[in-house]
Design a protein around this nucleic acid. Sequence first.
RNA 1: GGCAACGUAGCCAAGUGGUAAGGCAGUGGUCUGCAAAACCACUAUUCACCGGUUCGAAUCCGGUCGUUGCCUCCA
Length: 458
Amino acid sequence: MEQITLYNTLAGKKEIFKPLEGNKVFFYCCGPTVYNYIHIGNARAFVLFDFIRRYMAQNGYTVTFIQNITDVEDKIIKKAAEEKKSWDSVAERFTRAFQEDMARLGVLSPDISPKATETIPAMITLIETLEKKGFTYTISDGVYFRVRKFEGYGKLSKKSLDDLRAGSRISVNDEKEDPFDFALWKFSKPGEPAWESPWGRGRPGWHIECSAMSRQYAGRTLDIHAGGEDLVFPHHENEIAQSEAALGEPLARYWMHNAYVNLNGAKMSKSLGNDVTVRSLLKDHPPQVLRLFLFSAHYRKLLDFTADALVDAEAKYQRFNNFFHTFSDVEEKEDFSLVKEWDERVRAFLNDDFNTSGALGVFFEAVAACFKEKDPAGLAGAVKHWLRRWDSLFFILPGEETSLTGETLHGLMEILIDIRHRARASKDFELADMIRDRLKELGIMLEDTPDGTRYKKR
RNA sequence: GGCAACGUAGCCAAGUGGUAAGGCAGUGGUCUGCAAAACCACUAUUCACCGGUUCGAAUCCGGUCGUUGCCUCCA
């Protein structure tokens, strides 16, 4: 079992990761609210935590990965009203879109993927417990959590209620005892989705679902609770408050948060309308390129999504592509002794708070070493095998079929290459170049090497 | 206004006490009919700035400036 160090937001520092019991890891990651297509910033969190989950699973931990789908929420209702559709059809459509985007990005399905609407009984039970302990009160539009009564409020985000109040921009609802009290249960207006509850017909508040689900599916304190940096306050702070107030034990031991993706220097956000969807990016870029972009910086560091950044990621992808293409005749073979040092460095980087950027650097060093070797066949075979193994986790390498497949096509290519060879021999470069240019238009690149001409599909 | 994070070459970025990984771009060369790919050489005596601690600091401490974010739904 690898020893992993990770940055725990709750502790405010890196800590050695130790599951509550043995090698069992209950890992909860906040999922999407399904009212729109996800953007590249959303994808950062999902790609990252899927990566971490799989790295752990491949290294001796038994991971149960839980990721909710928020399928009832104000924004979904709003979107449905705009489109004149039912709220549940909107939720269904974007749930499917989310799952498709994830699959294309190479993100595995969670072990458990509960929907908010399927977990309402557990939420009601939790609110009842809070009510018994005096943490709730009811006003005209819903049941609220009494933030002041929970002693540790602010321990995750390192904020005190008084600091927050000083700079508060939130509009104060006169009925609320404190502006930071939040809704556990919202009463429904006519036409809005509604479930029966002891307090009246309504729907759950946003924060309660993660608390209820993690309890229902893990049954105890989580080992890891993860999400984007913007969820620290108030979402995760509120989850902690309600869970710990109700159950008297920690909600999670380790809290992990990824930094944002900015768009040309400013925050990318669905609500600001400057988001770039994964769906649109996948039209022009293979998923590997998007993942290379996402892995290019440490996850706790801000990533700026720019045209240059995408060009950079494309170039990295091409570098790998050229490597596999150049050594396409070399058979992959397992020879760990040749790659041992690189492998240890990659592991050291990943074990130190999942430093994917450092790990990528090692991959490129290995690639460069193969190109530099005078007789690289032995090394390249081992590096190819080694990279492919890591790629089951990273998913950044080009697929196997970079050269044309199919015997007929191959035969045709041989003919064209032969004609061009003859043209060159008789110094008919016009013809030779025409063949090369026309093939290029089809996306087939010719390369003249000392061992003859070869081709690849771009 | 309050609270944070970050600031490493033209760009991206790793490195958190022992003397600057890696990728892209650039320049010169090798190879080529010309290319492509690849290789070789060059490209930060220096890590925003100013002090301090230390034998030694990009790395620790204090201050200054700058960027970004959170304080409202948000990955």
